[in-house]
């Protein structure tokens, strides 16, 4: 079975020790900050901050680098497509000029488009870095507890933690069902079969997988009911420790980032409306 990128048990570093609510708050506000800004002056510092945070988490670099490369090139392909379809795509977002940097026959690369594509890539990679840092710092239980701390109904939070609990079991069933079908002569992953046949063959795995997975519902629901699940309107979390001094500081930072983001949106995008991004030129 493939390893999860998220850790199920908390790691040892400073960021790991923050409470679930703090982590979810930081993630939420920084993602919001990333998504609302298209400005190198806002994105680059966060990107660097995430890099520092990532290093402090002492992750498995092999996995991190593989993921980073994958996301980087997937998005790069997009950018090339944008450029091929409309070499002037940057004009709408930067200045309404066309300064040719380089020209290849009919195609050309303008300074405006180049800048726009560069910043878009930076924005996507910053969003990825914020997510990855969050994923590597949190555990599923803290995630559920954090969502609850931010006011989500606990039944929805249970969906998250319970789903994580049964994913390895279901993944195991999936592998076993697949193998037993292969032993009974079902061809899989073979290129010689056409798409429809392959899709249809997938149904043979899905049917027993779905039936046996949903068959668990009764037993699990009984186990929850017998331990007073749903008794009260509120609940507490074993995985969520009381906020420490560091938690208070970071929660304050999260709120500050949120306030800043709203102020930025208010002053830059709504009135007076600025649709063009900041450029050094």
């Amino acid at each position: 079975m493939k390893q999860f990128v998220i850790n199920v048990t908390p790691g040892p570093t400073f960021l790991h020790h923050l409470s679930g609510k703090t982590k979810v708050m930081l993630f939420g506000t920084f993602i919001f900050y990333t998504l609302m800004s298209f400005d190198v002056r806002l994105l680059l510092p966060l990107f660097i901050l995430c890099l520092v945070a990532l290093i402090s988490l002492k992750p498995n670099w092999k996995v991190v680098i593989a993921l980073f490369t994958f996301i980087f090139f997937m998005n790069l392909i997009n950018l090339v497509l944008f450029w091929l379809v409309d070499p002037d795509v940057g004009q709408y977002y930067t200045t309404d000029t066309r300064t040719i940097l380089l020209s290849l026959g009919n195609f050309f690369l303008s300074r405006e488009t180049f800048w726009y594509l560069l910043i878009r890539q930076l924005k996507l990679m910053t969003s990825f870095m914020v997510s990855l840092t969050f994923i590597l710092a949190i555990t599923p239980s803290e995630f559920a507890a954090g969502l609850y701390g931010l006011g989500l109904p606990y039944k929805v939070c249970t969906v998250v933690s319970l789903a994580f609990r049964y994913i390895p079991d279901i993944a195991n069933d999936y592998e076993n069902i697949k193998i037993s079908l292969q032993a009974r002569g079902l061809e899989m992953d073979k290129r010689k079969l056409n798409l429809f046949k392959r899709l249809k063959d997938n149904l043979f795995i899905l049917l027993p997988l779905i039936i046996s997975s949903f068959d668990r519902i009764g037993n699990i629901a009984n186990a929850l009911d017998l331990r007073a699940y749903g008794l009260l309107k509120k609940r507490t979390y074993y995985a969520e420790h009381e906020p420490t001094k560091a938690d208070h500081v970071f929660r304050f930072i999260a709120i500050a980032v949120l306030v800043f983001s709203f102020a930025w949106i208010g002053s830059r995008m709504i009135w007076p409306p600025v649709t063009q991004m900041w450029t050094p030129f």
């Binding site: 969906v159 319970l162 789903a163 994913i167 997988l209 997975s213 949903f214």
Partner: peptide, 22 residues
């Protein structure tokens, strides 16, 4: 009710497994 919570959780787990593996 509890059955719905569990059913949705199992659904989300299956969704995740199929997204990653299937």
């Amino acid at each position: 009710n509890t059955k719905t919570v569990v059913g949705v959780a199992i659904g989300a787990a299956l969704f995740g497994v199929l997204m990653v593996y299937g």
